[in-house]
Simulated assay, not measured.
Amino acid sequence: MKVLEIYEYLNQLSPFEIQESWDNSGLLVGDFNEDISTIALSIDVDEALIDSLENNTLLITHHPIIFGGLKQLEFSKYPANLIQKMIKKNISNIAMHTNFDQTHLNEYVATEVLGYEIAQKDGFVAYLEIDEDFDTFAKKVSSAFGLSHARCVKCSNRVKRVALTTGSGCSLMRSLSADCFLTGDVKYHDAMEAKSINLSLIDIGHYESEYFFAQILQKHLKNLGLKVIIASSENPFTYI
């Protein structure tokens, strides 16, 4: 099957045109006319992942390996070092980032990982109506994402309306209509801001909250009759 045929299938599943203006989803490495028999799915690209893949594989990632303006390809530096290895092995790459967040990832995490129905969906935000003790809820959330502890900003003892954004969503804080926000990459100043507007936060991790990208997509790609493997890159953080 041609890369173009797979791209068109993905575009129907999660249109690339709905990605954010700053995003870089789509075909990033390769040729639309290349014949593909194997697809690998991963959140990111790393060296060990590329080494593990067969030649002529199509790698579909959540995060784009080429994100900002790429002004040079110096093969001793990231990400050019990885792109070079991909080209040598004729590995194509399609990224599905903010488009997939909106169409699939947040919904899957809310319903399949956390086990709640979505009360409202607004772009990158899924709202959940719950009425639970904050500490109990926080422990349940951290367990669902495989976290050893719940890193929180606690503004109330009870949670009633929750907003969820996988990945890094703290820039959305002031636009939310919720009393608790689940997202990743929560920084110190994000926590201070959340406390000032009386918004509880639970940090669900960037990698941990997007880990499910591959298994969601695998279910859809099985319909194409190709070999589809989950070959996720490793979390760059080690917790000791």
Rank of each mutant, 00 (worst) to 15 (best):
A150K: 04
I130R: 04
A80K: 02
F213V: 04
D133T: 11
I197R: 05
K160I: 08
K88Q: 13
L27H: 07
L201V: 02
N81K: 14
L199N: 05
D190V: 01
F137T: 10
K227N: 04
Y9H: 03
L70V: 10
S209W: 03
V125W: 02
L82G: 10
Y9T: 00
Y239K: 08
M173T: 10
A80R: 05
W22Q: 08
E17K: 11
I18L: 12
K219W: 06
S148A: 15
M1Q: 00
D122N: 11
I6W: 00
G205D: 07
L49S: 06
F134N: 06
C170H: 01
Y239I: 13
V186Y: 08
S42F: 10
D122V: 10
N56A: 04
D23N: 09
D131W: 12
K77I: 03
Q12M: 06
K77E: 14
I66Y: 09
L59R: 00
D44S: 14
L27Q: 03
S143W: 02
S196W: 09
S21V: 13
A194L: 01
D44F: 14
T136S: 15
L164V: 07
R151V: 15
F237G: 05
G146Q: 06
G30D: 06
Q218W: 02
K121T: 15
F134S: 06
S42K: 02
G68S: 14
E117A: 15
D122C: 05
Q84H: 15
Y108M: 05
E34C: 12
A126E: 13
L182T: 01
A95R: 03
L105R: 01
V186N: 02
H189M: 06
H62P: 03
L49M: 07
L224C: 08
T238H: 09
I118W: 09
A48W: 09
D101H: 09
S42T: 04
H62V: 04
G167P: 02
K85W: 10
S52M: 08
I83T: 08
S25L: 07
M192S: 13
K222N: 06
V3Q: 00
E193V: 12
Q218D: 02
S52D: 11
F137M: 07
L58C: 01
K187A: 11
L114W: 08
L73T: 12
N55H: 13
L41R: 01
D31V: 13
D51N: 15
Q215E: 14
D133C: 15
I83D: 15
V153S: 09
D133W: 13
N106S: 07
M173L: 13
L58M: 01
E234Q: 14
V141N: 01
G123F: 12
W22L: 09
I91V: 11
T238D: 07
V113E: 03
E234D: 11
E17F: 14
Y188I: 12
L13F: 10
S171H: 13
V153G: 08
K77T: 09
D135L: 06
K222G: 11
V141T: 13
N56P: 01
M96S: 07
V29F: 08
Q19F: 12
G26Q: 04
C155M: 07
S171L: 05
R174K: 12
D179P: 09
R158I: 10
Q19G: 09
V141Y: 04
I18Q: 08
D185T: 01
T38K: 09
D101I: 03
E47A: 15
